[in-house]
Design a protein around this nucleic acid. Sequence first.
DNA 1: AAATAAAATTGATAAATATCACTTTTTGGA
DNA 2: TCCAAAAAGTGATATTTATCAATTTTATTT
Lengths: 235, 235
Amino acid sequence: MSIKGIFPIDKWDFKSRSVLAGLPDGDLEMLMANQTEKVYKLSEVIFWEGAYPSGIFYIKEGKVKKYKLDKDGREHIIYVANAGELLGYHAILSEDRYPDSAAALEETRIAFIPKEDFLKTLQHSGVLNGRLLKNLSHEFAVLANSLSMFAKSSVRERLALQLIILREKYKVNFQPGMPVAINMSRDDLASLVGTARENVVRLLSDLKEEKIVETKGRTITVLDVQKLIKIAGYK
Amino acid sequence: MSIKGIFPIDKWDFKSRSVLAGLPDGDLEMLMANQTEKVYKLSEVIFWEGAYPSGIFYIKEGKVKKYKLDKDGREHIIYVANAGELLGYHAILSEDRYPDSAAALEETRIAFIPKEDFLKTLQHSGVLNGRLLKNLSHEFAVLANSLSMFAKSSVRERLALQLIILREKYKVNFQPGMPVAINMSRDDLASLVGTARENVVRLLSDLKEEKIVETKGRTITVLDVQKLIKIAGYK
DNA sequence: AAATAAAATTGATAAATATCACTTTTTGGA
DNA sequence: TCCAAAAAGTGATATTTATCAATTTTATTT
């Protein structure tokens, strides 16, 4: 929760699911040679859709939303990224501009790695290459799943699915067995689900009556994941 | 249109946008050493979601739909792949099962490349590695775009967008300036747009009245792309 | 080319979702 | 701790989309 300041590279606690976990020391050093660190405040923008990428971002601590703006200027969250993940490398790999924007969902500590270092390391490191391919393939599958979900399912089903996913993301650092508290604005949640805030509010209060979640202020506590899974319609 | 039979490797006409275009000869030969070719009939399944991948597929000629089935057994197309594209490599890269199914949208000629050859070539070829990363990044951006589109836009907007995209895919081999004919069942189109067939039919007849498209049998001819772009709400 | 099956289309209606106007609650700064 | 300001919640209503039942058109087979 609390962000204490600048950490040296050797203090990084790579989560096991980090893209960079287990990368050879040499590769890691090359990649991190010129990293700079910054703490982003809630809602602070990390990069804008359409901008030319000058490097990639590694989330050391916190959470980040990736989103796109529609023609009416409304925000649509397409992904919530967690500590241990890399941001903005798609744009560099596809030699294009950022396809989406990114902003902090809470106070978030991020390392910036210049484009040149990233590309140099990538060229040098077969491991990093493979890691990114694997990561991208996975992200792709997740996204394809969301897409097919969006294509034909009710808002209630989509909300259930997003709560399941968010629960996983907010679970980090919590005890097993303990219910997970999701801290997210109704607007952001609605944007993630792809509906209006009012609908999310109404559906959440249904879920509350059904004893599936509990809410207190803006935090949502998942009481019964199994029922959520059933609602989301996952086999 | 017509499929003439088995082509030897050196006869392959790689389209410029093929993932394999410009791959060093050695790498290409290693990749293709044990390829086998098959012609798939309309609607014939190439691989099933959930199956373990034993290799990858290269589309030599034709078109393929990638889709997922929802809990009611209904099909949702997430992507239409064209000649020159590779299929099924995501699953191998992410060391998992196929995240979606694939089936031919027309008579389609496809080369099968065994998993071992693919992985061996990938390990050996930095170029292929980079090419796949770039390709995946691109596909990812396209998918992210569709997702944000789904999240908040009317069926009419989504239909317009899909017609624009399909027009590009069906444009291959046609003269510039000549209107492009899209040959696709209303069911498949509805699945791609994420709605019911009836809605697609109604919206198409609106577009017809507005002189934006023309239909004859199952083929849809795009007369005015600019208006479609306007409808889709793209800046 | 006729017969049959499959796909496309149309109209009526039901259901889901969005929007608007407003009240209440929560949150973050003075 | 109190006070704005922002966010969350509620009810009424409009709009969009889905579904059902039927008919017409197109494609396929003999």
